[in-house]
Design a protein around this nucleic acid. Structure first.
Lengths: 238, 238
DNA sequence: GCCATGAGTTGATCTAGATCAAAACAAAAA
DNA sequence: TTTTTGTTTTGATCTAGATCAACTCATGGC
């Protein structure tokens, strides 16, 4: 269950850019037209800029059309917990439905573009298109599953296992989008990876170096190449 | 945003036992009758018994009517990550909507009782009662927020901070249910606390002992008394 | 009630990962 | 181009929490 939204079938897909990733929901042309009105407002977000900030009022979800985001929570003392990295086709803002306020910051890690999805409209439309409602529920639930997997990672894996799990996750998501699963460029710094995995940046760097020494991957700054996917997976017994 | 369900207003509440905790949703008597049919099947779960198991087919959410549950994920090597502790009024099973399969095990930590909520019925009814749908979305979103808080805890807090955050969380939830916020009985073992907080049981025990030495709390086996709530909160600068 | 078994505490030691430090490297600005 | 600034790597050291071990306490079954 990937965190993608299904409303971008055919015509409405083109405008929103989420095309292939959408799960087929089986809408008729009338329904597709209804959806066309929902998702039309695009917004560009330059690298380093905020898509939304903690505490601001919630109106819309955002579907990533292009680019890469991180979301994170800040503690008073400045510690930053990255709650997720988000790529094309994924939805940002599900946390905000609860209190009608964003509970984290969302920053673009490269020049990006999102589709704004006004949430009250989404709720209205999902009443008349049950398959849309069901799909939305699956997306939210999938987010919970994903978070539980991160809890597993943070609560009971060692540094190397965490990094491998992270790489395998990225690899799978790139692959699903038609990119190479063994050759990709990280959009985030070592520190940001560490803030996601509950590790210091030095530990992340050392774990990369160790995997490279073992000829399992090669690391060239932000470029990662996976030479031996099987050995990588074996290390986390997936 | 507590993880409670709202369908238990007045008459239907009595049968389900979630009464006071429900957020008022403002239903008319006709709507309440519709809901009456939804949540009626009760199920008792003895201490140590499973409410559901990983991988089994999903039909229903469960609202805890009475008692206490833990949910957890098992890794192949036996490592257990507790994903949550659930008390009266809280919903279990939101993770399963995504793949229509439960993604974790749920075990009763004391003799308990749940209301079964057939999910397909819930979806149908929420189409005709928009306020119910909205409330359900808030519950799911609240679950995501809660999970992000746990990620923060696991990813960037030290042992003592984790335990205090856990105690404050329990304290708040007991208080909301009309029980003392400074005096309560833990339903789980040190090991289960550890499996939730990403710590070993000895570390949990030592953290308890340290807080007791500092006269902030007292610990008598599973009974906790908080003497100095302010000092406790200051330690995690809440 | 008594015993057996599981739960909890405490001490001694070990280690994975944090911290501190310095150098190498890359990308952007001047 | 050179300078500046931020990122990454690697080494040396330290420490929070894990691990190992022993003992105490509580509880449920008989």
């Amino acid at each position: 269950m990937s965190n993608t939204i299904s409303i971008n079938i055919k015509s409405s897909c083109a405008s929103c850019g989420l095309r292939d990733l959408c799960l087929p929901v089986g809408l008729n042309s009338n329904e597709i037209e209804i959806l066309g009105n929902l998702v039309n407002h695009k917004r560009a977000v330059k690298r380093g800029k905020y898509l939304h900030r903690t505490g601001t009022s919630f109106q819309s979800l955002y579907a990533v059309r292009r680019g890469f985001f991180k979301t994170f929570i800040l503690e008073k003392d400045g510690r930053q917990q990255v709650t997720g990295f988000h790529m094309t086709g994924e939805l940002i803002g599900l946390d905000a439905i609860s209190a009608e306020i964003y509970t984290c910051d969302a920053v673009a890690l490269e020049d990006s573009e999102v589709c704004e999805v006004p949430f009250s409209k989404l709720e209205e439309i999902s009443r008349v298109i049950p398959s849309l409602m069901k799909h939305f529920h699956k997306i939210m639930s999938g987010e919970i599953v994903k978070d539980h997997e991160v809890m597993m990672l943070l609560g009971s894996m060692k540094a190397e296992e965490r990094l491998i799990t992270f790489l395998l996750n990225l690899s799978g998501r790139f692959s699903k989008r038609g990119y190479s699963s063994v050759d990709f460029v990280l959009r985030m710094t070592r520190e940001e990876i560490g803030n996601y995995l509950g590790l210091k940046l030095e530990t992340v760097s050392r774990a990369f170096s160790k995997l490279q020494e073992e000829s399992i991957i090669s690391v060239n700054n932000k470029h990662i190449h996976i030479h031996d996917m099987d050995r990588l997976k074996n290390k986390v017994d997936v």
